[in-house]
Amino acid sequence: MDKRKTEVRELWAEGIPVKEIIKRTGTLRQTIWRWTRDLPEPETRVKLTRRTPKQETQREAARALYSNGSSLDKVSVQLDVSKPTVYGWIKDLVAKNPNRENNQGRRYKVNDEFFKDPNVINSYWAGLLAGDGNVINGVIRLSLKDRELIDGFKAVTKFAGKVREYKAPRGGQMYSVAISSSQWVKNLQQFNVVPNKSHTLSPPDLEHPLNLAYLKGLYDADGCLTHNTKGLSVWKVSGTRMTCEWVRDIATKLVPEHHANVNVNRNTTHDFTLVGSRAVKMLKALHAIKTPELSRKWPTEIL
């Protein structure tokens, strides 16, 4: 495969027409485009492809418009040329900044710098995303049962898009936002919010009180406060083993003298729990961190 790819790239660089490359190497047209998209188009290919004077003028205009900041969609509309054709003309420019189209092609604006520098507020939202969010193909999604928190997320991130409403598989109303931002994808890595995090999530390296703000968001997403058969408060957070051990280390400092363990559930997720007065102390310690919070998980009669 590597040998054939090298041959395709060399033929492309020589200016050999795509049809001829297909004949010589037996490579699919789509594969040729993928293997050569970072290479500039050779000048010799201009003659071999026999562009008309009009097409050559449009090509130069497309490259100029894109270089001056117009998106692929806008160039296509302005020149009245199909997007695949425009992409063929400018693909070497796109390859130099692959994340640019992700942001330019989106329909709604957002504060791309929101997660750039960790602070108490964005650490809380990162913790919430660690539990109830996901990152797929450059899009960050947050889905919750509570509209109040979704609206708060929209406001603080200056997201101008819509909130999607749908029924959860097990019943109940759900609210979701989907945000396309290459900067978010990059900056969320410092919080370890990455694709396919469900079984691999590790805690971020945050200083106090940012670590508590992150934990507060994680609790709002994947935690709960209940009571056991003796009527004692039970504070619990679920997640990966590494995450639960990190929560245990924080609890050791905030509410010492506990003997709680990290427990494994049937579905291989893990829980960390505190019971009684230590559960209440943990809840109050996190409540003291000035961030948004999910009201139903912070009962006023305890706080």
Rank of each mutant, 00 (worst) to 15 (best):
E7G: 06
E7H: 10
E7C: 11
E7P: 01
E7S: 13
E7V: 12
V8T: 08
V8M: 05
V8K: 08
R9N: 08
R9L: 11
E10N: 13
E10K: 14
E10C: 09
L11M: 08
L11C: 04
L11A: 06
L11S: 09
W12P: 06
W12H: 09
W12Y: 15
W12S: 03
W12N: 05
A13E: 03
A13F: 02
A13Q: 07
A13D: 00
E14S: 10
G15T: 03
I16S: 02
I16P: 00
P17E: 09
P17Y: 06
P17T: 05
P17M: 07
P17Q: 10
P17G: 14
V18C: 03
V18R: 10
V18N: 06
V18M: 13
V18P: 02
V18Q: 09
K19T: 13
K19M: 10
K19A: 15
E20K: 11
I21C: 00
I21Y: 00
K23D: 00
K23G: 00
K23A: 14
K23Y: 03
R24N: 01
R24K: 15
R24G: 07
R24Q: 09
T25C: 05
G26M: 06
G26T: 07
G26A: 06
G26V: 05
T27V: 10
T27C: 03
T27A: 07
T27M: 00
T27I: 02
T27L: 00
L28W: 02
L28C: 10
L28M: 04
R29T: 04
R29S: 02
R29Q: 05
T31D: 00
T31I: 02
T31Y: 01
I32Q: 02
I32W: 02
W33M: 06
W33E: 03
R34H: 13
R34Q: 14
R34S: 12
R34D: 06
R34V: 04
R34W: 11
T36K: 05
T36A: 05
R37V: 09
R37A: 07
R37W: 08
R37S: 12
D38L: 00
L39C: 05
L39T: 07
P40L: 02
P40G: 03
P40Q: 05
P40D: 04
E41T: 14
E41D: 05
P42I: 06
T44Y: 01
T44E: 09
T44L: 10
R45A: 12
R45V: 05
R45L: 15
R45H: 08
V46C: 01
K47E: 05
L48T: 11
L48R: 15
L48F: 07
L48C: 07
L48H: 08
T49H: 11
T49F: 06
R50N: 15
R51T: 10
R51C: 14
T52L: 13
T52N: 11
T52H: 12
T52E: 07
T52R: 11
P53K: 12
P53E: 13
P53N: 14
K54R: 15
K54F: 09
K54D: 11
Q55Y: 07
Q55V: 11
Q55G: 12
Q55D: 11
E56M: 14
E56N: 13
